[in-house]
């Protein structure tokens, strides 16, 4: 009985266990790893991917995904900088609105025009990248005020970086939305079986458009976090953000075919990538080897996950 429960824990909390194992090893060989500064650095490093990861989880539960998140984030940063002349608040609001609209359009392409999410969001990614290059005139533009510096580099109670606080709040909020509301339940239903969901009278298109708009909104929020950190924008920012988010969320065990997953699972996946990257830097692993290890890690964990899922299905 005990053994079975132990195995169940291993099966269900695999990512968490691996994170803990890495942490344990690092704490021994590199004590600096468990310094508060380093731990909050890691949380900070994953805060942007976590915020976008929330939206990506919503999408993947509904069997969609979004490749335009990085471009959309930088788009928000750019809009905020360009419009800050009429007040920082107005710039931020306009930026988030612009990103939400881009997300909404993705939703319309996918849900109404029935273009698959790969092509819709890829086009949006290229489009927004071009738009940012045009808006910035192919240069780096910078924010005029340092007003956001105290947000990007400030800490709550002197230790917790504000972006981490923001990410945590959003994670909890949307985890509740997903787990406790009709909207969340319907989303799982759509991901499991779109046709059946439609027959039960669920507004499938509406839900999908909502999930894409939410992702756009969260990209906007991330764009503001980015602004607070970099105080600048250019068309060369955020190129790999989409793959970072998608690999993290998938690593957390959310399936691309929809119908399963949770916000916290996704966060664990993203956190694992952050911890791994930090650990490899602390261990002085050379960059090329870092890529090899990260790749093999992804493959191993996901195979293990799938293997166990298959085994569970056998039982």
């Amino acid at each position: 009985m005990n053994g079975r429960r132990f195995r169940a824990i291993i099966r269900d909390q695999k990512i968490l266990l691996i994170i803990l194992a890495i942490a344990l090893v690092l704490a021994v060989v590199r004590p600096v790893f468990i310094s508060a500064e380093n731990l909050f650095n890691i949380l900070f490093q994953v805060s942007i991917t976590s915020i976008i990861g929330i939206g990506m989880t919503f999408l993947m539960i509904g069997a969609d995904f979004d490749l335009s998140v990085g471009s959309n984030m930088v788009f928000a940063t750019t809009v905020a900088i360009l419009l800050q002349g009429s007040g920082l608040g107005a710039g931020i609001a306009a930026a988030i609105l612009a990103s939400t609209v881009a997300g909404f359009l993705n939703g319309v392409f996918v849900a109404k025009l029935r273009i698959n999410s790969f092509i819709s969001t890829l086009s949006m990614m290229i489009f927004l990248r071009g738009l940012v290059l045009i808006l910035t005139n192919k240069q780096t533009i910078s924010g005029s005020s340092d007003a956001l510096f105290s947000f990007g580099y400030g800490n709550l109670f002197g230790v917790i970086p504000y972006p981490v606080v923001l990410a945590a709040a959003l994670l909890v909020l949307f985890a509740l939305v997903l787990a406790r509301t009709v909207l969340g339940r319907n989303l799982y239903a759509v991901g499991c079986n779109e046709k059946a969901a439609r027959m039960f009278g669920i507004d499938v298109a509406g839900l999908k458009i909502f999930a894409f708009s939410l992702t756009g909104f969260l990209c906007g929020a991330s764009g503001i976090v980015l602004l607070s950190r970099l105080n600048s924008a250019s068309g060369t920012y955020g190129i790999d953000t989409n793959l970072d988010v998608i690999s993290g969320v998938l690593l957390g065990g959310i399936s691309l075919s929809g119908g399963e997953g949770s916000i916290f699972k996704a966060f664990q996946g993203i956190l694992l990538l952050g911890v791994l990257s930090n650990a490899m830097i602390l261990l002085h692993v050379t960059p090329y080897l870092q890529q090899v290890i990260k790749g093999l890690m992804l493959m191993t964990v996901v195979s293990l996950d799938s293997y166990q899922a298959k085994a569970a299905a056998f039982r």
Partner: peptide, 21 residues
Amino acid sequence: VPDSKWDPAKQSTDVDDMIAM
């Protein structure tokens, strides 16, 4: 040698790592 992957945001957080180290 951290690898910032040509991403300005990653480079700024890598600086944080170096400060912590």
